[in-house]
């Protein structure tokens, strides 16, 4: 099945390239205007499609909302107190930046990070490891900021920012993965979350979003990247 779909994509690619080669040679302004108009209509149709066929906000009663907000507050409190220490897993971190005066660490990852206490092992040429602890106070699909518990000279190692770090810390609750975000990035890339697992709950509130995702059967929790929301 995978091979068939791959072949279909390759065929679509070849068709598109052929089409583009023809389109690029277009000289008539009228034809270009027509293509622009068609594209605009296509975008409009897609926007309507997303709005009509993919409504996201789950209608909820005020009571339900209050319950969820309370649950989330408790959850965050427990996270802040370091009570959510779960199974430790390594996942890949793409980049990270630091805010030295405020003792914060900013990380981008190809994964959704967990809310809670995490430990960072910093590797410098695979020889040096330092352990720092802090609390995640801001996270979303590919961004995380960590408030360190105390001022630590982790930012520079021998005057240079380390090139790699590994984060340990993943959590699983009843085969569900909770994503709580307090913001969404100001870019076009605020997720649509694509993945082969289903959303069991989603709530968009002013200021933050809570999404619970069911872990698909057969997927091991240790396979963190498979569970993670991408895009």
């Amino acid at each position: 099945m995978g091979l068939i779909v791959a072949c279909i994509f390759i065929l679509i690619g070849i068709l598109l390239i052929t089409l583009m080669r023809r389109l690029i040679n277009i000289e008539s302004i009228r034809k270009i205007k027509l293509i622009i108009a068609i594209y605009a209509i296509l975008l409009l149709v897609a926007t309507i499609y997303v709005g009509v066929f993919k409504p996201d906000v789950v209608p909820m009663t005020k009571q339900e909302k209050n319950t969820i907000v309370k649950e989330n507050t408790d959850f965050l409190e427990r996270a802040e107190n370091g009570q959510l220490k779960g199974k430790e897993e390594t996942f890949f971190v793409k980049t990270f930046t630091t805010d030295v005066p405020n003792n914060k660490l900013f990380i981008t990852s190809n994964t959704v990070s967990d809310i809670g206490q995490i430990i960072i092992y910093m590797n410098k040429v695979n020889t040096e490891k330092r352990v720092v602890e802090g609390t995640v106070y801001h996270t979303n699909a590919y961004y995380l900021s960590l408030q360190l518990n105390e001022s630590q000279p982790f930012v520079k190692v021998d005057g240079k920012t380390p090139s790699t770090i590994t984060i340990h810390g993943a959590r699983e609750i009843d085969k569900r993965f909770r994503v709580a975000t307090d913001t969404m990035p100001l870019f076009p890339f605020n997720p649509p979350y694509f993945k082969g697992y289903s959303k069991s709950y989603s709530l968009i509130l002013p200021g933050y979003t809570i999404i619970d995702l069911k872990v698909p059967r057969g997927v091991k929790v240790k396979d963190f990247n498979k569970l993670i929301v991408q895009k």
Binding site: V50, P55, N190, P192, Y193, S198, S202, I211
Partner: peptide
């Protein structure tokens, strides 16, 4: 697809 923020919501 699990939707995130869109122009609608």
């Amino acid at each position: 697809i699990v939707m995130g923020y869109t122009i609608w919501n």
